[in-house]
Design a protein around this nucleic acid. Sequence first.
DNA 1: GCCGTTTTCGGCCCGACTGTTTTCAGTCG
Length: 573
Amino acid sequence: MTNTEIAAVFDQIADLLEFKDSNPFRVRAYRNAARTIRDLPESMAEIAADPQRSLTEISGIGKDLAAKVATLIESGSLPMLEELLEEIPESVLAILRVPGLGPKRAAALYNELQISTLDALREACQAGRVRELKGFGAKTEAAILQGLEIASQAGQRMLWYEADQHAQLILAHLRRCPAIEQLEAAGSYRRGRETVGDLDFLAVAGDAAAVMDHFARYDGLAGVLLRGETKMSARLAAGAQVDLRVVPAESFGAALQYFTGSQAHNIELRRLAKDRGLKINEYGVFRGKKSIAGRTEEEVYGTLDLPCFPPELREARQEFEWAAAGELPRLVELGDVQGDLHVHSTWTDGLATIEEVAAAAKARGLKYVAITDHSKRVAMVGGLDAKRLRQQWAEIDQLNKRLRGIKVLKGIEVDILEQGGLDLEDDVLAEADWVVASVHYGQSQSQERITRRVVEALENPHVSAIAHPTGRMLMQRKPYEIDLEAVFRAAREHGKMLELNAHPIRLDLDDVACAAAKHHGVPIVIGTDAHRIEGLEMMRLGVQQARRGGLSREDVGNTRPWGQLKKVIGKHG
DNA sequence: GCCGTTTTCGGCCCGACTGTTTTCAGTCG
């Protein structure tokens, strides 16, 4: 059983316990465990199988939860969950997802009106039966109906890239408000999460009402959800919720820290503050009633002798341990990246010529760019056979003679064939500067077969890296099944790298996988998989995910000059 | 259910906003 699956079980138990009105701290223990396990850079099954180790070494996993994890790994199921599900139908959990409905109200609906499905809930609201319940009223009933609408429509998280487009427009609008003195985007958007649920903005202004009035005039708003003295929430026509908070300047740092989160990071931070007799809230750090910090984030963290964590690390994973040990990594930065190792050209399905790609890469400050078009198996886009590939490389050789300040690498994205083996002969691959191997076909094969195909590719001396190693080719589609631990082991054994593919809808190596690669000692390289020159911009996304995985410059292969990288992958010619 | 340089029991982050209340519970982030 994978970490993700174990985490899903614990999350479901937390939902069910919450619904049953169990001890909220017990619920939190399950949720914390779920989050910790989901984010863990190594497999729980491997830790459990290691006689030298114990699952209880993981913070938040005690004797009880360790036993439950062991049961899940051995049997694939958990008696406790089965019992809970006999008691409570699974469909009631959907009710908890309706905005405005939490465990208390959902339980009241279930116990008093026997409502266990969203359809039944809608009918009961329309019939006016919900308003009869104690603690409910006509407004609550209407809010539930609206919440049902939202839940059924979108309610989904946006890709960071989409969130960025909305955020930039909203920031531009807010900057035109004369009352605003300081302005920042916060939340998971600022932390660079792969997907973003809602957008958070923070402003400093003397006149909060003026800021809210200005925000309410933003074109893209569908409506205002709530508005108070300091806080306002609205919904974009595009569906996403936007929260705006207005604070005084002396609280800006504390508020920015608070609204950037994550929630788990904040809980840990406040716990540490409590240990020192301090209290942290969004207005500042307090000793008794006296504020001792709040203007900047550095000040706030400084009161606890902590560094101002890069937002990407604020997930309550390892950042506090790192800081305590003085081992906070110096995270990789966009400016560290020297080359893009995955770009397509007009030779297959790209829209830019090799020369255009080279010019665009140089303009972005890169020193090298690998042209990695598809091999012949990808016939749909005119994948290259040995003959055409050598023609392309001849063109690249000619181009390199003329170009200054940028080197074009002779690369190929070679297909890992369904039956195993690669789509081009070794003698051709041997002539390439950079060979990235990908699974495009036979994605529905068993985990064993796909893993074997990828591990075989890693054993090929001419392969430099594997792209799409997790099978998350498209977020909308189910990833293929692969034993990532086996891939890490093979990559390390053969000195290969894994590619973080930074296409906006194909972040195929997420932050947890980046951290896992680092944990297993496997370097990452970042490629954009650009099909047009604008696609090179996506390197930013890749770097962001790598930072979230805690990767430093040394952990990312293409922060090295090409001459050095070439030696690492064993290309000496 | 977890955790421990005061603790193996008694804590567990903190505040804004709304609706249904007559002082506060529920939800959210």
